[in-house]
Structures are given as structure tokens and as C-alpha cells.
């Protein structure tokens, strides 16, 4: 039956329940009381290597938003072989950054995750092509060769289904995680994140044509904040504080993306980052993360409607999920107490 239950009443009911608990009360009582106590060590598992992709978090850390909230946050980088789910499941990370499709898969495989907030309202997947052979709409894909990781075939399939394109008319080349084949002319277009290969191409002096999948019906929340049900029940105040700092950080981020890029470089001089690339990436991810919705409700927000759209797209990806995969209560607390 949960499928039919509207989200907001559930959340507000939960919120009411939570309001009675002492932990929440402590949060409400004021920050100084908590800061006086020893700060709580918290691991926050990022989904990839350090870069401005997590610029808001760096700001939160640098400006002391978290320490003001009584948290001592360690930002743990991810990597090609560092899936986010295991540390979050075991509790060695309180919260992690994932995406709705990965979270749905993990839940299907027994992980008790909830999505608490959504950093990327629009999915960053994009198809890049060169201007003289552009892919402007999904229909253009027919007869073209596309380079991608074979693991992402369901993504392309979903895009085709959403737009009435026959996937058999597209030649899939397993370029995996390498962007060079597009520039070398081995493929006509390439599936990747819009903040990734297109940024690199621009920096290399080749301005690509970028078609965002999200603009063609592909609705999958990305860079979502996940935590376990256990953490939500037992470490609620820490989660609220963590997410609150995060929201504050990202709110600062959007005000000055160049500063965020500079902070990233300064904070992680060994991460192999380059300032100009980071500035461009920082700028390009803004439209994915901030929208009318976030302007209205605040960073990370989601609604019944966006969740429903996600559920639809996830079904195309072969994932059956219910709205209770999303849990707005923590974010409501965060924004409510701001």
C-alpha cells in the first residue's frame, strides 16, 4: 500500500513524531550547546575523487558550518573501485552520495537506504558530439555510432524508449570510460556526464554539441544523499546537522562558483585538478543542481512529482521502486530550522 500513500502527509507525520524526540529537541535548542560538547566525528562518503563536483561540501567544511553544528566531518573520496554503498550500509559512513538508479539497485539487493536529498535535480548524463556531425535530439541518434560504457546500455535504452527511437539503429561501441575515441573520430557521439567529457573537450579547444538526457524525458535524480534507515532512526540529529551544513555550503557555492573552484584546488592540491577546468565544471553543474524548485524550497528539495517522474524512468531501467525510497523528513527539518 505505501505506493499509494501521498508523500507529504507521511513525512509530516514522521516529522511530528520526531519533533517529540530529545535528539531533535537538542538540535532546536541552539547550536552552542552542542558545540560546547565534543564534536561528533562523522564520515561522509563522496561518490568520486575530489573535485568541484563536491564544492558545496568543501565550503561547508572551510567555513566551519559543520563544526558550528557540532560535527567533525571527514570527506572520504570515492573512485572507480570505491562504491559508496558498502561504507554507508556498514555505518562506517553516516551518509553517502549516490544516484537514484544505483540506490534503487542497492535497495533491491537488500540495502536499507533512503534518499534524503537530491543535489542534481537534473540527471547529468549527456550525449556529446562534434558540431559537424551533431546529435541535437534523440532522433539524430539513428544510424550513428555511440561510444559508452556497456554498463550504461540501460540508460540509452531508456532514452530510446522515452523518445521512440529504435536502439538497434544505433551502433554501440564499448569505449568504456575513455573520451578520446570521439575526438579521434572513432565514434560519432559519446555518452557521459555533461560536467565531464564536454568540459574536457571545451578545455581542449573543441566545443562539443551537448544533448542533456534530462531534457528528453530521462528523469533520474543524481548526486543524491543516502543514509540507512538505522541512521535515520538513531543518528537523526547528526544527519540533520550534516545535511544542513551541506545545504549552507551549496547555497554559498551557487553565489560564487569560481570561489568554489579555487577552494577545491587550494583544499586538494594533490588531487590533480586544474583551476580553469574546475571553474568551467563548477559553472556547468549549476543548472543541474539549482532550479525553480530549489529557489522555492531550498537546496536538495524534491517533490511528489519529481519522485513520480523518477519512478517512471527507473521502471524503464528495470528498477521497480516505490515513493518511500525517498524520505524528505530530514531535509524538512533542515530547512524548517534554518
Amino acid at each position: 500500500m505505501p505506493k499509494l500513500t501521498p508523500i507529504s502527509p507521511v513525512l509530516s507525520r514522521r516529522k511530528l513524531l520526531q519533533l517529540g524526540t530529545t535528539t531533535t529537541a537538542a538540535t532546536m535548542l541552539g547550536l552552542n550547546a552542542i558545540r560546547a560538547a565534543a564534536s561528533v566525528p562523522v564520515n561522509f562518503q563522496l561518490s568520486w575523487l575530489h573535485s568541484v563536483q563536491f564544492g558545496g561540501s568543501y565550503i561547508a567544511e572551510a567555513k566551519g558550518y559543520w563544526s558550528d553544528l557540532g560535527l567533525d566531518v571527514a570527506l572520504t573520496p570515492g573512485g572507480p573501485n570505491a562504491p559508496v554503498e558498502p561504507p554507508v550500509v556498514t555505518g562506517s559512513a553516516l551518509m553517502g552520495i549516490s544516484a537514484a538508479d544505483y540506490t534503487a539497485a542497492a535497495v533491491e539487493n537488500g540495502a536499507p537506504f533512503k534518499i534524503l536529498a537530491v543535489a542534481m535535480q537534473k540527471n547529468p548524463f549527456a550525449i556529446s558530439s562534434l558540431p559537424d556531425n551533431p546529435v541535437n535530439s534523440p532522433a539524430d541518434l539513428a544510424g550513428k555510432s555511440i561510444g559508452m560504457a556497456t554498463a550504461n546500455t540501460p540508460v540509452l535504452q531508456a532514452l530510446c524508449d522515452l523518445n521512440g527511437v529504435d536502439i538497434n539503429e544505433i551502433e554501440i561501441v564499448p569505449t568504456q570510460y575513455d573520451g578520446a575515441p570521439l575526438l579521434a573520430g572513432q565514434v560519432d557521439c559519446l555518452l557521459s556526464w555533461s560536467t565531464d567529457l564536454p568540459v574536457a573537450m571545451t578545455m581542449q579547444g573543441v566545443e562539443p554539441v551537448v544533448m542533456l538526457l534530462a531534457d528528453h524525458g530521462y528523469a533520474v535524480h543524481s548526486q543524491t544523499y543516502i543514509a540507512t534507515e538505522d541512521a535515520i532512526a538513531n543518528r537523526r540529529s547528526d544527519l540533520v546537522a550534516l545535511l544542513k551544513g551541506e545545504v549552507m555550503g551549496w547555497t554559498d557555492y551557487v553565489a560564487d562558483t569560481d570561489a568554489a573552484a579555487a577552494l577545491t584546488i587550494e583544499r586538494y592540491p594533490d588531487a590533480g585538478l586544474d583551476l580553469a577546468t574546475q571553474e568551467l565544471q563548477a559553472e556547468r553543474q549549476v543548472p543541474l543542481m539549482f532550479s525553480d524548485l530549489t529557489d522555492q524550497h531550498g537546496f536538495g528539495w524534491f517533490t511528489e512529482e519529481t519522485v513520480a517522474a523518477n519512478i517512471e524512468t527507473l521502471a524503464l531501467l528495470g528498477r521497480t521502486v516505490t515513493p518511500d525510497l525517498w524520505d524528505l523528513s530530514i531535509l524538512e527539518e533542515v530547512h524548517g530550522s534554518t
Binding site: 575523487l49 573535485s51 573512485g79 586538494y268
Partner: peptide
Amino acid sequence: EFTGAERGLGILTLQAMRRLDT
């Protein structure tokens, strides 16, 4: 280093390839 390291040549390789920085 692909398992989530803070620094090292592996990290630099990943970032360089991502930047198409041959």
C-alpha cells in the same frame, strides 16, 4: 588508489584521463 585514495599517481592518472590530458 582507485579504492578512494586522497593522493598518488593513480589519482593523477584518473584525473588526467578524465581531462583528456594526454
